[in-house]
Design a binder for these strands. Sequence first.
RNA 1: GGCGGUGUAGCCAAGCUGGUAAGGCGCCUGGUUGCAACCCAGGAAAUCAUGGGUUCGAGUCCCAUCACCGCCUCCA
Length: 473
Amino acid sequence: MPLMLNSTLHGRKVEFKPIHEGEVRMYHCGPTVYDYAHIGNFRAFVFSDLLRRYFEYRGYKVKQVMNITDVGHLTTDADEGEDKILVAMRREGLKDPWEVARFYEEKFFEDLDTLDIRRAHHYPRATEMVPEMLECTKKLLEKGNAYEVNGSVYFDVDTFPEYGKLSGNDVARLRAGARLELNPDKRHPYDFALWKQDPSHIMKWDSPWGEGFPGWHLECSVMGTKFLGQPFDIHTGGEDNTFPHHECEIAQAEAAYDKPFVNYWLHVRHLLVDGEKMSKSRGNFYTLRDLLDQGYDRKAIRYQLMVSYYGVNQNFTMDGIGAARRSIDRLNQCIRRLKDMRGEVDNPDFGPLMETARNEFDREMEDDLNVTGAMGKVFEFVTSINKLELSLSQATEALNFFREINGILGVLELSDVEVPEEIMEIIQRREVVRRAKNWAESDKLRDELKELGWAVEDTSTGPVAKRLTHPID
RNA sequence: GGCGGUGUAGCCAAGCUGGUAAGGCGCCUGGUUGCAACCCAGGAAAUCAUGGGUUCGAGUCCCAUCACCGCCUCCA
């Protein structure tokens, strides 16, 4: 069955067709490394991981690129408030913008690992792509799509009639409703900088037009084309990037090389926290580290971020993280039960259930990665097989299904839990007193285990140790 | 002001090509257990934002209103 994606460029769901058979090339707007990424940022990053893992599940070879924006488009004497970089430098005791960028880049990668987000194939830094950006700027000047004024180079939107095709904006209308500050250097208010000269900037490079820094939109065009070719298949980012950022990327790349830039654009809607938009002033602004510090489980956070349709806002709540944790536990519990199945006789009810589960899971996912719907089908499957006694081979088949979908989800516990010696010892001690029906002592040992972060479940086949994943449940 | 999106049980939510509403969490009852936890069985709970319209029939299409989100300025 075809995979349907809701492409912003098309304005509707369209069938995905790769440029290269069996291969997908994707570009994802990455972090600006002047602060910790917040939980909303991670919705977009988890989505890029979901896409990648899902394409791999479908058997595609995937190539991913994500930019690291380390060019501070900021000045030493910021007009309003204090410069973000300077604040970050003081906060972290760092000496220059480059150090700030490397510091937060490292934190970003740590956060990716925390959320089990698979690494993209390239993470180009903007500061290391300046030659390519200069080259693209020169090309646009040569072709007449850009003009130089006072050491800055602007893209001339009037030379690109398709400007607006992604966002649905219309240059004439934009001009009418313009509330931009007038920049006398620009011919049109929506012309945007490819190269900018500004003496007060901290980061500067040489160029044919004097010292300056690259424009805000150029890095993504250049990196996408360099690592993925032009056109490439999919470009993703937060919904806020649609205009002007992605619109400008298209204009630059297509004007420079006279061919389409990207075939499908997917935009991730923002998340709300407790029903409101996240902001520091509202006190509902969280980084990933904030949540971990409060004791929330990383897999629950991943699950929570992933199991909602990317095309609508998600209401992220602290209760939701706990609910996510318990949802994962339910799946894990089913997996554990399957591992104990040793029957030799096939259960006739199993086959149809298994087939339905696979088909419906796939059908939901093919519908624009409707993970929510797909998981609904998985839970229906869990409920129905929890009632059945299965043969070893059937249990194995079910386990394989969980293993496959976990390639996408990345939150399930499929391998046996390794129980530390110390814990095993207490559990065995508890078994001895339990057999002697010394309940007081038995419960004391159970409390002791809890203190150490472990639970014990007394099953018919003996005690099973279970790691307590989350103190706040 | 313009463009796009959302509003479904206590909470998170699927439902997008129209035929009276998935799933998870929570809650209730029973089973299991030494007691729990986990699990199982059963159950309560939704006038699908509001008001019109089209239709034999609308959460699902159309119009209007309200609320919220994004963009029009850097931002996932």
